[in-house]
Simulated assay, not measured.
Amino acid sequence: MFSRDELERYARHVILPEVGGAGQQKLKEARVLVIGAGGLGSPVLLYLAAAGIGTLGIVDDDTVSLSNLQRQVLHTTERLGQKKTESAAVAISALNPHIRVIEHTERLTAENAATLIGGYDIVADGSDNFDTRFLVNDTCYRLNKTLVTAAILRFDGQLSTFKAHLGEPHPCYRCVFPAPPPPGSIPACSEAGVLGALGGVMGSLQALEVIKELLGLGDSLSGRLLLYDALRGDFRTVRLRRDPLCRTCGAKAAPAGQAGGSQ
Rank of each mutant, 00 (worst) to 15 (best):
A124V: 14
D125R: 09
D125G: 11
D125H: 09
D125F: 03
S127E: 12
S127Q: 13
S127W: 08
D128M: 12
D128P: 02
D128H: 10
N129L: 12
N129V: 10
N129S: 12
N129M: 11
F130E: 10
D131S: 15
R133H: 13
V136D: 04
N137C: 08
D138H: 02
T139P: 04
C140H: 00
Y141I: 01
R142K: 13
R142A: 15
R142F: 05
R142S: 13
L143R: 04
N144L: 13
N144Q: 13
N144G: 07
N144F: 01
K145I: 03
K145R: 15
T146H: 12
V148I: 15
V148M: 10
T149C: 13
T149G: 10
A150M: 09
A151I: 08
A151P: 00
A151T: 02
I152T: 07
I152R: 02
I152F: 04
I152D: 02
R154K: 12
F155Y: 14
D156K: 10
D156M: 05
G157S: 06
G157H: 02
G157K: 04
Q158T: 02
Q158R: 06
L159K: 01
S160L: 12
S160K: 08
S160Y: 07
S160I: 11
F162E: 10
F162R: 07
K163V: 00
K163S: 11
A164I: 03
A164N: 05
A164E: 03
H165Q: 10
H165L: 09
H165V: 09
L166H: 09
G167H: 11
G167C: 12
G167Q: 13
G167R: 12
P169E: 13
H170Q: 12
H170M: 03
H170S: 06
P171A: 06
P171G: 05
P171M: 01
P171E: 01
C172N: 11
C172Y: 09
C172A: 13
R174K: 07
C175D: 09
C175L: 08
V176T: 14
P178H: 05
P178K: 05
A179S: 15
P180F: 04
P180C: 07
P180N: 09
P181G: 02
P181S: 06
P181R: 03
P181T: 04
